[in-house]
Write a protein that binds this DNA or RNA. Structure first.
Lengths: 203, 203
DNA sequence: TTTTCGAACTTTTAAAGAAATTGGTCAAAA
DNA sequence: TTTTGACCAATTTCTTTAAAAGTTCGAAAA
């Protein structure tokens, strides 16, 4: 029965997401995910070929969550500044709630296992598209002048990444998930940076 | 004889700098530094209380090198853009030549040993002062409008840090010293970022 | 035929202990 | 005062082993 099967597949994804978001890839075991659902461990392998691909599927869900939510916010924004702020806060909220799912993207602690990396359409690439979207909107409304939209988006995103890294480093907290206060501080600085940055692109 | 003593102290600092710059703190041994100079290991401990303080002294030299050279470049610059570009390229050149001395400042690999950290007037703080200098110059010449100079300098510096981290991550090269090409790429992006950033502060 | 599971198998990680390296000390000599 | 070789203690590295976790498989249930 495909319907029931899909339902179980989704159950597994949800349970795995909870575990991965809370404990990360390494500290989550297949046995634990199975126990949470009262499934047998072997059943997980009926729906997913291995742990890494299960993780990759969860990761992709989380990425989609970021992309979908930010896209909507960008779409309904009045101007570039509003779009940018909405993008930043929405994105950081999703990251905060699923921090350990992004342990390989937004923390420098560990490197992504190669077989996961191969499967994933890079989150970074998608984020560049999101920021490019904002910039293009600004160009269309004559708010901004940007010669190379994608490169500019990339520069801004890398700078924003540095904001997270730099601040977590400052707090000597590069190994624990950031606290709410740290996230707020990061968001504050990210907004300030993007404000200056956008200003630097104004027509 | 204090003069001879000072001369030997400097010899030790130079030999230590070569080792640290090439192999980093952990992979440099006191015995190796002594061998390079045909001194006994114990002599090093006559001039420096321990390995960490020797490293700290070398680190401070390297920091002074950055600060002195960039200060001079900033002083003789015509405008903010020129000052900023001179600051960035001079700074990155010194970092490139002494990369492993800055392994705790500019790479996220390892954290600074606490007793070293305590001794050091943070490089980051000094860099903030340098960028603040540039911004103040811009404010004085009416080129820029900046409300909180230090915070703005901090934001820019953190962004520039992200540029290094982000790019080294992209090259999956977070553990090796960057190549010349990578440094050039980093410098290019840093210049683009600071250009937009400075533009965003213009009066 | 599809789905599920217990048990077995293989690989990875963690722990423990031993060996080697290295940081640091000291009494004596120059 | 400066310098050293010999010595000690702390740390790191390596080896071995045990435990844990990932994965497979054949059989049974649906």
């Amino acid at each position: 029965m495909a319907k029931n099967a899909d339902a179980k597949r989704i159950k597994i994804l949800e349970a795995a997401k909870r575990r991965f978001a809370h404990y990360g890839l390494a500290k989550t075991t297949m046995a634990e995910i199975a126990q949470d659902l009262s499934f047998s461990k072997a059943l997980l392998y009926y729906y997913f070929p291995d742990k890494n691909r299960l993780y990759a599927a969860v990761f992709e869900m989380a990425v989609d969550e970021i992309i979908n939510e930010t896209t909507e916010k960008i779409r309904t924004s009045k101007d570039v500044t509003e779009a940018m702020e909405a993008f930043l806060s929405t994105r950081l909220t999703v990251i905060k709630e699923n921090f350990n799912i992004f342990e390989f993207s937004y923390s420098l602690r560990n490197e992504m296992p190669v077989d996961i990396e191969a499967v994933l359409p890079s989150l970074f690439e998608k984020e560049i598209q999101q920021v490019s979207l904002i910039l293009k909107k600004g160009v269309e409304t004559k708010e901004l002048v940007v010669d190379d939209v994608e490169l500019t988006a990339k520069i801004l995103l890398i700078s924003l990444l540095g904001m997270r890294i730099g601040i977590l480093q400052e707090f000597k907290n590069l190994f624990l998930p950031p606290t709410k206060e740290e996230f707020d501080y990061i968001l504050g600085l990210q907004k300030k940076l993007s404000h200056i940055f956008i200003n630097g692109l104004r027509a």
